[in-house]
């Protein structure tokens, strides 16, 4: 996937990448300001609001450390995005371990609730995404929001392609309930994940 179509393009951006790679923190700050919205959205959607700030900072620190490895073979935004996804996945795994929870937590499907309606549908949709169980949420975000393919997601998460497809369908069905049944809750549906 590429992000060039929806990533802000500014004159001198490539120059900033080169300067930042050479240790210019002012150039790196400009890169940060250009990309932070998209990276923060990614982390918020995949990990939730609570951890988004912290992980976004980790992503940019990692970016600073790895800038020397950026060869310009893809757009900087694409490279940064992929690095961000990797950091988020690492963090998700450590969170899952900390919480003693597997990423494919079928029981979580029974517990998902959606917050009361707000007038801002976009905010509601964002909030609904955050309520998805972690395994389904990250695949929903990667596939439907970010545009990755199942085979890419399977490679990133080290899971089978079929698992990615099933989790995506679960997530969509939960989101469908939110959209079609309204904002009260989406907990009534039976768990479908026992076989995973």
């Amino acid at each position: 996937m590429t992000l060039s179509s929806d990533t802000p393009v500014r004159a001198g951006l490539d120059n900033d990448v080169a300067l930042a790679a050479g240790g210019d923190s002012s150039a790196f700050e400009r890169l940060y300001r250009t990309h932070v919205g998209r990276i923060h959205s990614l982390t918020r959607r995949m990990l939730g609001s609570h951890d988004a700030d912290e992980v976004t900072q980790d992503i940019f620190v990692r970016t600073w450390q790895k800038l020397g490895q950026f060869r310009g073979e893809s757009a900087f935004s694409t490279w940064l995005h992929r690095l961000a996804v990797n950091v988020v996945i690492e963090r998700r795994r450590s969170f899952a371990i900390q919480r003693g929870r597997m990423s494919d937590d079928a029981l979580a499907l029974d517990l998902v609730t959606v917050a009361p309606a707000r007038t801002d549908l976009t905010v509601d949709f964002e909030h609904a995404m955050e309520q998805l169980p972690p395994g389904a949420r990250e695949i929903f975000v990667l596939h439907d929001v970010e545009g990755y393919k199942h085979r890419e997601i399977a490679a990133m998460l080290d899971i089978a392609t079929g698992t990615s497809k099933r989790q995506l369908h679960r997530a969509r069905m939960l989101m469908r309930r939110f959209l079609s049944e309204g904002p009260t809750h989406a907990a009534a549906a039976p768990a479908q994940g026992a076989r995973e």
């Binding site: 919205g37 959205s41 940019f60």
Partner: peptide, 25 residues
């Protein structure tokens, strides 16, 4: 809706995170 969210103007964090990043790098 998910695709719309992906293409929407990204919502920046409420707090400016740069100071913390600068301190670490």
């Amino acid at each position: 809706r998910a695709q719309e969210a992906g293409h929407a103007v990204a919502r920046p964090p409420q707090a400016d995170l740069w100071a913390g990043i600068a301190a670490r790098i």
